[in-house]
Design a binder for these strands. Structure first.
Lengths: 339, 339
DNA sequence: GGGGTAAGTGACAACGTTGTCAATGACAGG
DNA sequence: CCTGTCATTGACAACGTTGTCACTTACCCC
């Protein structure tokens, strides 16, 4: 690899002068600069990041730790968002995927330390509390899609309550009154928050929410969920006073509702409006009719996580805001107004 | 951060002795080793990767460049597979997402050089040829999910032809004879290969393939695809001598075939068998009935890419095998035997 | 002409680590 | 006791870069 010294020798100047030019130091004669720049390019010089770092400068590399991006595929967008933000300043991500393995996570923390990363984004695959057990890690840690159980770290989380509110509000505005809800498993944060949002929307509309119309669309413990939305939807839609619309816990639940509707010869959206959550485009854009849903703002969470990390560098270690990122309705074809 | 020197001072030995212990050099007295190890742990010493690298040692960091993992969400599994393989040797991935932007890609190559990465995996989101324009990059480059257009780099690609063969063979074995095909857009490699595989399966079974039953499920140029599978399927299934089974270009096409079947009151699998491609679990596992499909072996491609990179280090620069990774059938509920 | 300032440049040290080589002491064999 | 060998340890240089400081030259102002 080409070093400063090689370039300096060719150009007949000192190493330091070349260094200055590489770093855009204005205290260099224009003529020298041009001459050296020519050599820099022809030799394809690229500064050695390791050497730079050793000189005490902080790393331009950030760590990205995630328990498993695989299960909810679009959460990769958190990575994309983070990279988009880092890119402006030529910073990079060192990615660690723990797949939930604690021993692996420990190793990765060690690796982050070895690389002297300038900060770490800890992202989880679903919205949940998390304890960051790295008391002696001095650089900022920001949580994305999860929040600090102890309230000691900044975090970025989707506004699930607002999202639930938006789902219900959207259907209520279309005139629906009997609205079914097929939830995710009960013991995750999103379920509680979205449920609260839905109920708030009913209250704000001066209506009461029929609790009997809320059923589970998934069952089982975290990480071992079973889809039961098809059966739940069939049962709900076979009832005499069936709902005219269904709010789904996610787009996969909506997919099963579509199947259930087909099974019962109900036409979407004529006979049944359906609204999803997550906006997993593989599903939402390809279903016919395409699925109106509420988007999880993964890209935005990733982007803001980086910005928050930069802010955290300025603030003291106790700065720990919990930032809600809105979940907007993405309107497609699966809902229609009721007369 | 704790350095060798600090540890050495506390332990009352030289820096070099501590270094030896950290690196497992056997030429250290057992008593000294134990004493120093105690200090290493209590100070939580982690070697400085940058300093290590400067001493000429090669980096334990690999670059991962991808044009866009976002569109086909499960291709993240390439990353997971690569990490699983790297993890055994405490190596890491520096991830670069170009989103197809060439200028960005250039910057990232520069960054890889700056970090002196030990090798690069170049992954694309769909199976295609690629020209790696990095003639002066001395470390190995391995292509994943794409192959070197000039045949000058090792590459790992899904066995699309085998996958197409498997789709057709599976249905033929179930007794289907009139089999519709809804392809991806024509100008990508996968379409051609899978088509060839399907035809080969027919030949091997001593049957002729009815070309009129092959229709496009998607249209438009690369990156601007439009889904037309719903309409194509409706048309195909409305015909008098409609096929008893449909081979889909991917699971999204299959999703639309499900919608088309529902639209026409055809029951899957009783009236129509459907087989997908990709195994996008969000779709395949959640459709009712669940979707029999052929899996794209992304995880395996990532894993083998790392192994291939390690081999490439041993071999000379001209070593450039094109390795096919098989695409296995994942049997679920969407196909049944025909009498 | 003398003194001061500014622009431009380079010598040198330091960052944390490891390879090379030399020094020390213990111990065995003659 | 002398010589050689082995185990253990440390001093030092080097990796590529940048901050500090000093040096040279040119120029301006009194």
């Amino acid at each position: 690899m080409v070093t400063l010294r090689e370039v300096a020798e060719r150009a007949g100047v000192s190493i330091k002068t070349v260094s200055r030019i590489v770093n855009g130091d204005p205290a260099v004669n224009a003529k020298t600069r041009i001459a050296v720049q020519h050599h820099l390019e022809s030799l394809n010089y690229v500064p050695n990041h390791a050497a730079r770092m050793m000189r005490g400068g902080s790393s331009s590399v950030f760590g990205f730790m995630t328990d498993a991006v695989a299960t909810t595929p679009y959460s990769v967008d958190i990575v994309r968002g983070a990279q988009a933000a880092l890119n402006e300043k030529n910073q990079t991500l060192l990615i660690a995927n723990t797949d939930g393995d604690e021993k692996l996570e420990k190793e990765y923390w060690r690796m982050f330390r070895a690389h002297r990363v300038a900060g770490v984004i800890y992202a989880s695959m679903f919205h949940r509390p998390h304890i960051v057990g790295q008391p002696d890690f001095k650089d900022p840690i920001v949580l994305a899609n999860c929040f600090a159980a102890l309230g000691d770290k900044p975090s970025l989380i989707p506004d699930d309550e607002g999202g639930g509110y938006a789902q219900a509000e959207y259907l209520l505005k279309l005139g629906h009154r009997r609205i079914g809800v097929l939830t995710l498993i009960p013991d995750i944060v999103a379920t509680t928050l979205r449920g609260a949002g839905i109920r708030q929307a009913f209250r704000d509309a001066g209506l009461s929410f029929d609790e009997s119309l809320e059923q589970r669309g998934m069952d089982g413990p975290v990480h071992f969920e079973r889809m039961i939305a098809f059966d739940a939807a069939v049962k709900m839609l076979s009832a005499k006073d069936r709902p005219s619309a269904i709010i789904c816990g996610n787009d996969q639940v909506a997919l099963q509702v579509y199947s259930a509707a087909a099974h019962l010869d109900l036409h979407i959206p004529r006979d049944l409006s359906v609204i999803g959550f997550d906006d997993q485009k593989v599903i939402s854009e390809n279903l016919r009719p395409s699925l109106t849903t509420v988007a999880l703002p993964y890209f935005e969470i990733g982007r803001q996580a980086v910005e928050t990390m930069r802010e955290a560098k300025q603030n003291d270690a106790n700065w720990a805001p919990k930032i809600l990122v809105p979940c907007p309705v993405v309107e497609r074809e699966s809902c229609c107004a009721i007369s």
